[in-house]
Amino acid sequence: MKILLVEDDELLGDGVRSGLMLAGFAVDWVRSGDLALRALADIPYDACVLDLGLPGKDGLAVLRELRRRSNPVPVLVLTARDTREDKVAGLDNGADDYLTKPFELEELLARLRALIRRACGLVSPVIEHAGLALDPVTRQVSRCGEPVALSGREYALLLDFMTHPRHIRTRSQLEESLYAWGEEVGSNTVEVYIHHLRKKLGQDVIRTLRGRGYQLGDSAP
């Protein structure tokens, strides 16, 4: 799951990025509206956390521009302004949710999970597929009711597959989802994590489509 964080304040941006990373998100952090629009045009983020009080092109302008380009990415707006007019303006300009500073990290994470769930068309908070169950809140994975312990990256990779069932995910898509900018990506890391997932959850949990990419297996183990 990859999030774009748009925040000009160093301290807050650093904190939110660390918090999101702790929760298993890959986070790209930009500090201005123009950079945010460029990043959103290039990379299919799962969600965007946008501060409205940006210098230069402010958050509302970014939102309007984003929606004008018909970019459907779920946007959670962070703002210091808490009047009704401000909230209405934020939502009416294309925000999907709204948090007023200061906020609880827990709430930010829960709202992001809900936004992503809705964007994937999922109803239940626990994602289930072919005997596998993944709970994004507790980050627990079970297979046929048996809990399975996964590392952070393994979990993130499985989450990507389970929120995109039936999609064929290319290696570069998976890398983008797993890693933020500037993180070292090994030449065969995705293969390594897929290998780990198959070992822990069964060989057919992920299918390899030669030359095209990977897909979530659809038969129960």
């Binding site: 304040d9 807050l12 904190g15 210091a80 302004r81 500073k101 200061p102 906020f103």
Partner: peptide
């Protein structure tokens, strides 16, 4: 709006950092 931003942002940052 400016005052809210200047006063709330450091608080939000402190809160998030402490939770991290």
């Amino acid at each position: 709006a400016d005052a809210a931003h200047e006063l709330r942002t450091p608080l939000a940052a402190l809160k998030v950092q402490s939770q991290v």
